[in-house]
Amino acid sequence: MVVNNPNNWHWVDKNCLDWARRYFDEHLVGLKTAERDGKRAEITSVSSMEGDCEVSQRKGKVISLFDLKLVMMVSGHVGDEKFEGSITVPEVAFDSEKDDYQFDISIYKETGKLSEIKPVIKEELLPQLRDTFYGFGPDLLKTHANDIQVPADQVNSQFTKGNLQSGPASSGAKGKPAQAASKTVTSKTEVATSSTSGAPKYNTTTLHLEPTFNVPAIELYQTFIDKQRIQAWSRSPLQSSSSKSVLEKGDEITLFGGNITSKLVELEAGKRLVFEWRLNDWRQGHYSRMAMEFHESKEYHETKLQVTWSGVPIGEEDKAKGNFMDYYVRSIKLTFGFGAVL
């Protein structure tokens, strides 16, 4: 990053969101519990990360400002029974203390037996996560602080030089000095690849949603591919590339007066659906990828819908998430009685 900032006086920002994604991929994936009475859990991936992450400087002072939400996928076993699930952290912020982090643990297809893994995760895995999140701020400053300042030998102002020598002003850990990162994470800008060759690109992010429905998985699955059901919960006419009553691979539909276009690209009965999905006002040719996995807990008579939604343009996250929860999840529950509506 080239800086033209005489005496490090002016405000300079550096967006570090892509670097943060790579940092957490490297530092979180692989964290695990010990084998304990036949129980074990491990972080397998970072499913999504939303929010802001910047390093800034003015008058020689360097600060980090970040507020992130992360969802991590977890898997393991309880005895001979395997499980998958997720751990959601609603807020990892620049001013968070180690005890401030909150965790939402979700076990897919949960049973009484599988629920026994939650205390193990809380006792052994969450402390490792707290340490990683608490160390993120210092590592962020250590890696990027020098990128937004001119070297000290080019600074004539004694005021800003004094600030520069005093080190970074703040980090994700209050009062904690910047420490060397245990690993180097290379930043790289991520842009969406459109399904149409030569189409404009967006900087994109991935959303992770987990609504729960009080219905068997196969019934919920049919609700997303049966055209009559789709028209019922969308409360709008459906235009389709096929005349068949049920969506098949490759079929494309438009909903909500043409505001949404959705193409089915993968399906596995009762288990998985993948759509290419776009809002009409997105740039021509740009599609996101909405992957749905259906996890049914027969013991609890419910199905958790795991939605991994990649390719959502940055800045559109709240709109996309809100529309999905209102016009898909809420509407399906109201139309078919598949669960409580909050």
Score class of each variant (00 low, 15 high):
P200R: 09
A180L: 13
A173R: 10
G172S: 02
V150P: 00
H208G: 05
V150T: 06
A152Y: 04
K161S: 10
P168C: 07
S182D: 13
S194G: 13
Q158I: 11
S197F: 11
S182W: 04
S195T: 11
K201Y: 00
V191I: 14
S182R: 15
S157K: 00
K188M: 09
V191G: 00
G198T: 01
T193G: 05
Q179V: 14
S170N: 15
K176Y: 14
G172I: 03
S195I: 13
T205N: 08
K174G: 04
T189H: 10
Y202L: 02
Y202G: 00
D153Q: 06
P168S: 08
A180T: 09
L164F: 14
T193L: 08
Q165V: 01
P168R: 06
A178L: 09
H208V: 05
T186D: 11
A199K: 09
Q158R: 14
K161Y: 07
T160D: 01
D153N: 15
T193P: 02
K183D: 00
Q179C: 07
P168N: 05
G198C: 02
K201T: 10
G172M: 03
S171P: 05
I148L: 08
N156H: 13
F159T: 12
E210M: 12
D153R: 08
A181V: 02
A181W: 02
G167W: 06
E190C: 06
P151D: 07
A178I: 10
A192H: 10
K188V: 10
S197V: 13
K174Q: 09
N203L: 09
Q179L: 15
D153W: 11
A173W: 02
T205D: 09
T196E: 12
A152E: 15
K201E: 09
T205R: 06
G167E: 03
T206S: 07
S157A: 00
Q158Y: 05
S187V: 06
T160L: 02
S182G: 15
S157Y: 02
A181H: 05
T206L: 04
S166W: 11
K188I: 08
T204C: 09
G172P: 05
S182I: 08
Q179E: 15
S182N: 12
A199T: 02
N156E: 13
